[in-house]
Amino acid sequence: MRRHRRHLLAFMVMGLAFASMAMREEDNPDVFGSLRSPSESQTGILPISTLAFDTVSTQGIPVARPSAALPLERFEITASAFVKQAEQPIHLNDTVSFIIRVSWKGAIGDVTVENPEHPILTGLELLSVQPSNKTSPESGKTVAEFLYLLRPTQKGTATVGPVDIHYRLRQSGEEGTLRTTSQALAILPVPINWGKILLVALAIITAVIIALCVVASVIRRRSRKAMLEEEAKPSPYERILGELSSTRLLLIEGELKNFYHKIAQLTKGFLSVTEGKQVMNMTSEELATYLESRDIDQQMRAKVLSILSRCDNVRYAGSVPTEAEHNDIMADLKTLIDAKTRQEKTGGQE
């Protein structure tokens, strides 16, 4: 019984010892070379909080143990893989730095680490790879780093596959391989930058307000100008009289037909002030019929038709009037306009 009790005690001590070893391994995941096989490593989504540890996120696992146990123990070769920005959420348009770090005790030349194969990526694309060797003065360890710049291509879960790292000891020529476990990253959609949006909106609103102010000022200035111009603008009859006086230039230039055409147009223009633009495209006969149907002063109607008839004779019948006839037709039109202007000023009392 006592013997049994002793065996049970010894078994419990061994169990405690094993448990303590296991706990030590968990507490110090930096240490590689454990006896765990690669299949025992867990592959899954690592939440951002998990990736936030700036230490080792994935342990390297020896795939082919060196023939002698000495190198691992002597150089303490370890490998780790982690995402540099693990503390921050990763968005679609971010660049992700994935680092594989191999370290050993000793000089740079003691261990040769080959460039690893590119990891198999899902939801990520490889932008570039930068290998480097450096010696850490604090721990006296040599570190070989492989930096992979990655960019997410889709939101959701992205994975970085396991990477095999081959090394060789220079002195003994012994070789070995370490493998990192695969990593899962949560990729978030592109964040909405409310601050920037607000800033742009503010800028647009400011620009619109400035533009509106400018437009309002221009409109106000123009309307004032238009008002002034309107005040200074001659009446339609004054305008026709102005054009009539300049029509004589056509006679000086020998443009007889154009002179009479202009006189006819001015006569129709005179009528259009009261009768509307429709009269401008009427022929003399059409105009005669039209005026017949309107309540228009007989004398005025006769004068209008007389002017148009004389114009038609020159324009269509090749008639060549004398200088006196040119003056007469201009005087007749002027008399007509003056009479109408006087009539309008007196309100038809004349």
Partner: peptide
């Protein structure tokens, strides 16, 4: 009774 054409003739 005209020996020349006017636009009235064309329109008519």
């Amino acid at each position: 009774h005209r020996g020349h054409v006017t636009p009235d003739d064309v329109k008519a």
